Simulated scan of single mutants.
Amino acid sequence: MGTMISTRTAVVTGASSGIGAATARSLAAAGFRVVCAARRAERIEALAAEIGGLAVACDVTDRDEVDALAAAAGSPVHLLVNNAGGAFGADPVESADPADWRAMYDVNVLGLLHVTQALLPALRASGDGTILNVGSTAGRIAYEGGAGYTAAKHGTQVVTETLRLELCGEPIRVCEIAPGMVRTDEFSTKRFGGDQEKADQIYAGVPDPLVAEDVADAIVWMATRPSHVNVDELVIRPRAQAAQHKVHRI
Rank of each mutant, 00 (worst) to 15 (best):
T7L: 06
V11M: 10
A15G: 10
S16K: 13
G20R: 05
A22G: 14
A24E: 05
R25W: 01
L27K: 14
A30L: 02
A30S: 08
G31A: 01
G31N: 05
F32C: 03
V35P: 04
C36P: 01
A37R: 11
I44P: 00
E50M: 08
G52E: 02
G53H: 13
L54C: 09
A55I: 12
A55L: 06
V56P: 01
A57N: 02
C58A: 06
T61N: 04
D62T: 09
R63K: 12
V66S: 05
D67S: 08
D67R: 14
A68L: 06
A71M: 04
A71T: 15
A71G: 13
A73Y: 00
S75F: 01
P76S: 05
L80S: 07
V81T: 09
V81P: 01
N82Q: 08
N83F: 02
D91N: 05
E94K: 07
S95P: 02
A96E: 06
D97V: 08
A99Y: 09
A103F: 11
M104P: 00
Y105M: 15
D106W: 07
V107F: 10
V107L: 07
V107E: 07
L110T: 13
L110A: 08
G111P: 02
G111K: 15
L112M: 15
L113P: 00
L113I: 13
Q117Y: 11
A118S: 09
L119P: 01
L119Y: 13
P121S: 02
L123R: 12
R124A: 05
A125Q: 10
G129R: 03
L132A: 11
L132W: 07
N133V: 07
G135P: 00
A138F: 01
G139I: 00
Y143H: 15
G146W: 00
A147C: 12
G148C: 06
Y149N: 06
Y149S: 04
Y149H: 12
A151C: 13
A152T: 02
K153M: 04
V158Y: 12
R164I: 13
E166M: 08
E166K: 14
L167W: 01
L167E: 06
E176F: 02
I177L: 10
I177G: 05
P179M: 06
P179T: 02
R183M: 11
D185P: 01
E186D: 12
F187D: 11
G193T: 01
G193S: 03
G193V: 01
G194S: 01
E197G: 04
E197A: 14
K198I: 03
A199P: 00
D200P: 02
Q201P: 02
Q201A: 13
Y203D: 04
V206Y: 03
D208I: 05
P209R: 04
P209S: 03
L210K: 09
V211A: 12
E213I: 01
D214N: 15
V215R: 15
V215T: 03
A216I: 12
A216W: 08
W221I: 09
W221R: 14
R225K: 15
R225Y: 13
P226L: 07
H228T: 08
N230W: 09
D232G: 07
E233I: 13
L234G: 08
L234I: 07
P238N: 14
P238M: 05
P238Q: 10
R239E: 08
A242P: 01
Q244N: 03
H245P: 01
K246H: 10
V247A: 02
I250Q: 14
